[in-house]
Amino acid sequence: MTFLRRSVLLLYSALIVAPLYFVVVTVFKSSPDFYAHPLGWPLPPTWTNLLRLFREQPLWQYFRNSVQVTAGTVLLVLLLGSMIAYAIVRFRGRTAGLLFMIFAAGLMVPSQVNMLTLYDLARKLNLSDRPLGLILFSSALLLPLAVFMLSGFMKLISRELLEAGSLDGCGEWSLYWRIAVPLVAPSLASTAAFLLVVVWNDLLLPMLLLGSKSRLTLPLAILQFRGEYVTDYPMLLTGVVVTSLPLVVMFLFLQRYFIAGLSEGALKG
């Protein structure tokens, strides 16, 4: 490696690591220590912020809410999206083209455009402030992207394989479930990783649909911590670190799927 290459990489690594390092260190600092030496090593390191945060905030409740909404949405989108993608591949011809167009059109409409009517419709359908409502709305908004990504993957399955299965007396359900789904499983996994990041981190839709404190998902919860710990960076940053941990741990183990999924999402979205 040349000197120049090495210095650029080192500099950019520092740019990524430095903010994260100081945030993590702050978790273990008492407030007086932090305000006296904001960038120093914690003297002595303390668990106070963590204990206080778990005592003062219904964190487990927020985790449960986030897990419930994220799991529900990711599973529903994968199921409905892969079924539609399968049908598009099997229909062929005009019907397939039309279906594809209908969903692809949704890619041009970002959820920010609909924020008012989504908010209004949720109230009218009695889906406001309910995890189920958030799951259904999130799924509807993510479905176009999922159909787009998944039908791209399903098209790669050889047509002969499905037709051979069909001749052997397989119905559409078993073709879908026993041949198509297993064949695209790795792509389903990266699509799932992509959806997971989007839903887990989403702010706008939960903000529009959820009202009561006990329903909040994690991004909304840490925004609320900011209101409560307005001058207390150690507590606020502890909230940031604790709520980010689940995805960070998953990323460490499943990097491949996250990186593939998030760049696929960029290519198609």
Binding site: N201, L203, L218, P219, V248
Partner: peptide, 10 residues
Amino acid sequence: ILSTVSVGLI
């Protein structure tokens, strides 16, 4: 992979 809210607060 961090939420935008976390990034904003960091």
